[in-house]
């Protein structure tokens, strides 16, 4: 009888270590398939933040053991595909009050610049609600942002 509390605690600790999970299983799929789909928002030939994008992808790749599959395009179609689960992340420049902020999850910026158009953030976007995947991306984005 006395073992029950210990077993319950062990069960709770095991469950808790697995939280959060992804409703659509993104992180598990990325690890299982060893690849993740990346959309890069075309910035009209601008190479601003390219090194940070590369660093971000490298870190995610190391953390998951998966390779990024890249595709470039305009923000609208890429973010729509992200919402529908065809892409795993989208990297690009976003305005701080981007309307996409409600449809997808914008992670902490990995870089920023002030131009004539205002404040622009170099950010990674992920599909809403994939909390385990978002947790991993959060950690890596913050590490990239901390680099001088």
């Amino acid at each position: 009888m006395k073992r029950w509390p210990i077993l319950c605690l062990a069960w709770a600790a095991t469950c808790c270590s697995d939280i959060p999970k992804d409703p659509e299983g993104t992180l598990d799929r990325v690890r299982a398939e060893r690849r993740f789909q990346v959309g890069i928002i075309a910035a009209g030939g601008s190479r601003i933040g390219l090194d940070r994008q590369v660093l971000m992808l490298r870190r995610v790749s190391e953390a998951t053991g998966a390779d990024p599959i890249l595709q470039t395009g305009a923000s609208g179609p890429l973010l729509t595909r992200l919402e529908e689960g065809e892409l795993d992340i989208v990297i690009g420049q976003f305005a701080p009050a981007s309307p996409w902020g409600k449809k997808v999850t914008l992670l902490p910026p990995i870089g920023e610049q002030v131009s004539r158009d205002g404040h622009i953030l170099l950010t990674v976007a992920a599909r809403n609600g994939e909390n385990a995947w978002i947790g991993l991306l959060h950690r890596e984005a913050r590490a990239v942002a901390a680099k001088p």
Binding site: T105, N128, N131
Partner: peptide, 19 residues
């Protein structure tokens, strides 16, 4: 069928799930 994002936050040097 809105999926809610609950991100981690950085607390005392550790990532803690906000949930």
């Amino acid at each position: 069928q809105e999926h809610v994002t609950v991100p981690p936050i950085h607390l005392f040097g550790e990532d803690v799930w906000l949930g």
